[in-house]
Amino acid sequence: MSRILPALLAPVLFALFAATIAAPASAYWEYGHETVATIGYRNAKPETRIAIDRILHHAQLLETPTCPARTIEQASVWADCIKTLGPRFSYTSNWHYQNVDVCKPFDLKSACRDGNCVSAQIERDLKLLKDKTLPMRERVQALAFLVHFMGDLHQPLHAGDRGDLGGNKVTAAYGAYAPERLNLHAIWDGYLAERSISTPPSLVRRYSPEEKAAIQAGSVEDWSRESWQVAHDATYATALGGDACGPVPARARLDQATIEKLVPTARLEIERGGLRLARLLDEALG
């Protein structure tokens, strides 16, 4: 930017731009997962919260000192943090998503062969967390995975794709921001997520029984289908000029008007993830 703008003008424009664009370090990768976890925790039953705290008190059993899980917020990003530990947890890499083609009829079974997908792992972790006969280390790990994967399931590009690694291969621009490596997945993981979560009113609150009932209904497969539909209707359609299954341009563009229209959708996904997490936590621990 500084190569084409006058030297005195560039710093001013950069400061204004930085104030409106989220930094990756505090985006969905942490901010989104932590918000889903906090909503879930606050909307769980009191006895569930006590059980969560009791289990996470044993987080040292995970033996991952560089990836703590002592609080629900720390636990929400533990599954991503352990990716830095090399082969020790490499077998978990496929558990964070499910590649269900948005341009074909919804088919979760094909995408979840052998349980290697996010929805299958959510159901597995729920069973493990319910089983009080298991060693505490196993239940701590199941809790951390469950909290994280409920966030992943409600990021639409972890639930649907077009053979493009959930939008990772779709080069995209976010408003005026268009660095060479920015892609559609990063926008929904980070920039749009932070914009949506930080837009008032706060998503972190106690929801009414009526609000909970409307969102918490259904099964993990129902939620998978819903998130997959969001990937089709909102994520891909808006990025590809209205046709989610149309040709992919050299660079997809989300202008400011489109971003503003997508904020309510992204906020709803965070709410869904948090309140449904609360339901599953209550089922397992309440």
Rank of each mutant, 00 (worst) to 15 (best):
F17E: 10
A257P: 06
P135C: 00
R253T: 15
A18Y: 08
Q98R: 06
K83G: 12
E211R: 01
V220F: 04
P24R: 13
R195G: 11
L192T: 09
A142N: 10
P6E: 14
A234F: 07
T35Q: 01
E226D: 11
L13H: 11
K212L: 15
V230H: 02
D101V: 02
D80G: 07
M136V: 14
E30C: 05
N183P: 05
S198L: 15
V102T: 08
F89R: 00
L62K: 09
H158P: 04
A252L: 09
A15C: 10
R225M: 08
Q98C: 12
W29S: 15
L62C: 13
R124E: 13
D282V: 07
P105Q: 02
H33T: 00
P46E: 06
L275Y: 04
A120I: 06
S219A: 03
H158M: 10
A10N: 13
H158V: 03
L240K: 11
L146M: 09
E180L: 10
A257E: 09
P11R: 05
G175A: 08
D189S: 15
K169T: 05
G32C: 02
P249H: 08
Y174F: 15
A27P: 07
L153A: 12
G167P: 04
M1Q: 11
H33Q: 01
E30Q: 05
A51D: 09
